[in-house]
């Protein structure tokens, strides 16, 4: 009986397994294969070498890597602070109105990320919507707000907002109101309720949101290109250059492996701190 249900389970998961193998694992394997091929070659059938990794370390790609991780880290921090109050309100205060917010946020996803970022570019550029209006109204002559690190963070906060918001809403709405009332009844202030009840119990949602936005931001390219110009070169941009302009697939692959391993390690570390079963009452 048990064996039979196991077999049925395996069968049901087969389509997904094939899809994952083809679309996710196979490209990863190809990339990891290329990362140990000689530089500027286009075949996987050569003697493996570690020269690309040596190049990654010796040629100062660390700066880009630090930029990527640093920008992602700041983005996640800002999103945490920005999304928590709204998520709490959507889960516990707004009732019907939170559906409206959900639809509005989701609608923004219907437009391609690049187009939305171009919109922000027009908004922030010299003589653009914001600065042009300020000039016309007050005669203020301000320099362009584009092409710096903060504007890249702004772009990523904007683009990845839903990926933090929705897991958080889910996490917070799982907390029974009575726990909060009980804490208050036992003498807890609002801040103590937040610290002792809300945050720990919403942690699965918060961590899932943080991980999603961190991974996405660390690999983000469009924000730094469209809003940041060439001011900041992020890891994704180095990878693109290596694959495209540089025609050096092995170097690009080695850079990719670096990013994948680092971000993966951070994500796995976060996952290990999170016991979904315990929090959802199934231990």
């Amino acid at each position: 009986m048990h064996g039979q249900s196991n077999r049925a389970g395996l069968l049901c998961s087969l389509p997904m397994a094939i899809l994952l193998a083809l679309c996710f694992i196979a490209p990863l394997l190809v990339v990891s294969g290329f990362s140990v091929m000689p530089a500027k070659t286009f075949s996987l059938l050569q003697t493996p070498t570690l020269e690309n990794f040596a190049a990654v370390i010796s040629q100062g790609y660390f700066k880009s890597l630090l930029w990527s991780l640093g920008l992602a880290f700041v983005t996640v921090l800002i999103l945490l602070v920005l999304c928590y109050p709204l998520a709490f309100a959507m889960a516990k205060v707004f009732h019907r109105f939170s559906d409206v917010i959900t639809i509005l946020v989701v609608l923004s996803l219907f437009v391609s990320e690049n187009i939305r970022l171009f919109g922000w570019q027009l908004f922030f550029m010299k003589g653009g919507l914001l600065l042009g209006s300020l000039h016309a109204l007050f005669g203020a002559n301000l320099d362009s707000l584009l092409y710096n690190a903060p504007i890249i963070v702004f772009g990523m906060v904007y683009v990845y907002f839903p990926f933090m918001l929705f897991p958080m809403v889910l996490g917070i709405s799982m907390i029974p109101d009575e726990l909060r009332q009980a804490a208050s009844d036992l003498g807890a202030t609002r801040f103590e309720i937040l610290r002792e009840v809300d945050l720990p119990l919403a942690m699965p949602g918060i961590l899932v949101g943080s991980m999603l936005t961190f991974v996405l931001s660390a690999g983000a390219l469009a924000e730094s290109k469209l809003l940041g110009g060439q001011k900041v070169v992020v890891m994704a941009s180095e990878i693109e250059t290596a694959f495209g302009y540089g025609q050096n697939w092995p170097l690009g692959s080695a850079l990719s492996m670096f990013l994948i391993v680092l971000v993966g390690a951070i994500a796995i570390f976060a996952l290990s701190r999170l016991d979904l079963d315990q929090i959802m009452g199934r231990s």
Partner: peptide, 15 residues
């Protein structure tokens, strides 16, 4: 408010 009263409650759900 509840958190300033010297009384407390055992909830139906226990909480």
């Amino acid at each position: 408010p509840a958190n300033r009263r010297p009384t407390c409650m055992v909830f139906q759900s226990l909480a």
